[in-house]
Amino acid sequence: MDFFKDIGVLVTNEKYMGMLFEGLGTTLLISVFAALLGLLIGTLVAIVGIAQDSPIMKLPKLICKIYVTIIRGTPMALQLFIMAYTIFAIRGFPKEITAIIAFGINSGAYVSENIRAGILSVDIGQTEAGRALGLNGRTTLIKIVIPQAIKNVIPAIGNELIALIKETSIVSMIGMYDLTQAAKIIGAGNNMASYVVPMTVAACFYLAIVYLLTFVIKIIERRLRASDKR
């Protein structure tokens, strides 16, 4: 089988593996920082979303609603294009940062919905008990509600992170050199008859990361659950 032989050739070729690892670095860089940005935005948006209705909160609530609606209602690729070719179309502006912002903003919209649902799933009695002791709304949220909400949302956030990592593969569309792009270049520039071999190897890289992440999430989940029963 030529296919397996070619894979063997590729994975033992230092230059090709170097290219793939360089691409992997970009993929991880974008994923990690976009995920952090997404969590930050998502948490803020969720907190605004569940805050009590009051005149001061009206505008922030509206903005958050519009943000989530637009981001969830339009394709990621278009969001990335718009960021890259209009908002951040500044000569010399690092593409990594453009991508991190674009994916962070996108991820934030989905994460905010997860966190909102997680916070609402915590029994209202927990909040009432906190408030009845004289704690203010913010302390109650931070010390009591959010720690319990996190437990509920870890699986959903994990799925969101996994989706994010895979979705970053579209950054090659704005000319970035990520794992997918590396595979494309290897496929185009060598004497292996097709793209299939480098693409397969790149896919295995994605698979390995996702598998690892799934494993880590499982461990975190189990850790958090341990505090439930002891």
Partner: peptide
Amino acid sequence: ARQKMGMVFQHFNLFNN
């Protein structure tokens, strides 16, 4: 004011975390 008014609920509402 609430610091001086203890409340006990039907469903206990101990902080689970």
